[in-house]
């Protein structure tokens, strides 16, 4: 479903993604893990037509995001790492906007919007402007919106950042059901190792733009002779903190998140 070979992304002379290759098969739940600044979001942006790769090949659902962006865009949905709602619209209007852009028929769109907004407990706030929401509520709305059209592939870039455990649970239950019922491929990143261990069928670990290990959680644990994915991750990526690597923009975003969180 996703095939990446020798993918490289450079910003100036800084290499953010350094010659990575991997495959995700249809219907798989795949976790992409790595320290801050490893290149996860950059990779997702290239897969989702938002960034042009410096070199390498990508196939998403059999098509190349560089040359056939419109076909590729039909096949996926995405929840971004950083905010992407229109603050001046209401929660409902944000859902509507998304549904119309993705061509979901009106009846289905309204029915699913209601179901999803109830799932993330925002149904009674549907007429509130998004700018009145707390950080976590915005996050919940973004997730509901990302699930409104049922795509073949869903990309989730740190979807659970800032979410309470209840919502996290509902979200994963819904996603797993979707994965079973419609065979949706799920590609996600997270910094919660226990989440990756519990949810993902296969994992790739990226550090400094390179994939340094991949396999099931059990395989990674066995490979590093540790007893949890968290330890395996630390063993593979080392213990130094990577925040310096993050661009000032990234750090600002993190701060903004921090301020708006409840």
């Amino acid at each position: 479903m996703i095939e990446v070979s020798n993918l490289v992304k450079k910003f100036g002379d800084f290499t953010a993604v350094d010659n990575i290759s991997f495959k995700v098969s249809a219907g798989e739940i795949f976790a992409f893990l790595g320290p801050n600044g490893a290149g996860k979001s950059t990779t997702i942006k290239m897969l989702t037509t938002l960034l042009q790769p410096t070199s390498g090949q990508i196939l998403v659902n059999g098509h190349d995001p560089v040359h056939q962006p419109n076909i590729v865009r039909h096949s996926f949905g995405i929840v971004f790492q950083d905010p992407s709602l229109d603050d001046e619209l209401t929660a409902w209007e944000n859902m509507e906007f998304h549904g119309v852009l993705y061509g979901v028929p009106k009846k289905l769109r309204h029915q699913r919007a209601e179901q999803l907004m109830k799932l993330v407990e925002l149904w009674d706030r549907k007429k509130s402007l998004v700018k009145e929401f707390s950080g976590g509520m915005k996050r919940r709305l973004e997730i509901a919106r990302g699930l409104l059209h049922h795509p073949k592939i869903i990309f989730l870039d740190e979807p659970t950042l800032g979410l309470d455990p209840q919502t996290r649970n509902y979200m994963w239950t819904y996603l797993k059901e979707l994965n079973k019922a419609e065979g949706t491929t799920i590609f996600f990143t997270t910094h919660y190792m226990e989440e990756a261990e519990r949810i993902a069928q296969r994992i790739a670990i990226i550090d400094h733009g390179k994939i340094i290990a991949s396999g099931t959680a059990a395989e990674l644990i066995a490979q590093t002779k540790t007893n949890s994915l968290e330890d395996a991750f630390l063993n593979l990526t080392g213990r130094s903190i990577r925040e310096e690597a993050a661009a000032p923009v990234d750090r600002m975003r993190m701060m903004r998140r921090g301020f708006t969180k409840r």
Binding site: T48, T49, L50, N70, R73, H74, F76, I78, F80, D82, P83, S84, L85, D86, D87, H98, L101, Y102, G103
Partner: peptide, 14 residues
Amino acid sequence: QFGFLKETLVAPVS
């Protein structure tokens, strides 16, 4: 800057 552009740019709309 507010991130909303991404939402429009990944949509399957020309």
